[in-house]
Simulated scan of single mutants.
Amino acid sequence: MDKLKDKVIIVTGGAGGIGLGMSKAMAREGAILAIVDVNEEAGQAGLKILQEISPKSMFLKANLMDRENLPSIVTAVAEKYGRIDVLVNNAHASKQVTIEETTQADLDLSFGTGFYPTFYLMQAALPYLKESKGNVINFASGAGLNGHETQGAYAAAKEAIRGISRVAANEWGRFGINVNLISPIANSEGVQAWAKAQPEYYEAVRSKIPLGRFGDVEEDIGRVAVFLASEDSQYITGQTIMVDGGSIMLH
Rank of each mutant, 00 (worst) to 15 (best):
T12A: 08
T12L: 05
T12Y: 09
T12P: 12
G13K: 08
G14K: 05
G14Q: 03
G14W: 08
G14C: 01
A15M: 01
A15K: 01
G16F: 11
G16A: 14
G16Q: 13
G16E: 14
G17W: 01
G17Q: 06
I18P: 12
I18D: 08
I18R: 10
G19V: 03
L20H: 07
M22L: 00
S23E: 07
S23K: 07
S23A: 15
K24I: 04
A25W: 04
A25C: 06
M26Y: 12
A27M: 03
A27P: 12
A27Y: 11
R28E: 15
R28N: 09
E29C: 01
A31K: 01
A31P: 02
I32G: 09
I32V: 15
I32L: 07
A34I: 09
I35G: 00
V36E: 11
V36N: 02
V36S: 03
D37Y: 09
D37H: 08
D37A: 07
D37C: 01
V38K: 05
V38H: 07
N39P: 04
N39L: 14
N39M: 14
E40W: 11
E40D: 11
E41Y: 06
E41F: 03
A42L: 15
G43Q: 01
G46S: 09
G46N: 12
G46Y: 12
L47P: 13
I49M: 13
I49C: 05
L50I: 13
E52S: 07
I53F: 14
S54N: 03
P55L: 02
P55Y: 02
K56H: 07
K56D: 14
S57M: 08
S57G: 10
S57L: 03
F59G: 00
F59W: 07
L60M: 08
K61V: 14
K61T: 14
K61L: 06
A62G: 11
A62V: 12
A62C: 13
A62H: 15
N63M: 00
L64P: 00
M65Q: 15
D66C: 09
D66A: 05
R67Q: 15
R67L: 14
E68K: 10
N69S: 15
L70T: 10
L70I: 10
P71A: 08
P71H: 09
P71W: 10
P71F: 09
S72A: 07
V74C: 05
V74Q: 10
T75K: 15
A76S: 15
V77N: 09
V77C: 04
A78E: 15
E79Y: 02
E79L: 06
G82N: 00
G82Y: 02
R83C: 14
R83D: 06
I84Y: 11
I84D: 02
I84T: 05
D85V: 13
D85T: 05
D85E: 06
V86S: 04
L87E: 11
V88R: 05
V88A: 06
V88D: 11
N89A: 11
N90V: 08
A91K: 06
A91F: 05
A91Y: 10
A93T: 15
S94I: 02
Q96W: 14
Q96P: 14
V97N: 06
V97A: 10
V97M: 07
T98S: 11
T98R: 00
T98E: 01
I99R: 08
E100W: 15
E100T: 04
E101L: 03
E101C: 01
E101P: 02
T102P: 00
T102W: 10
T102Y: 03
T102K: 00
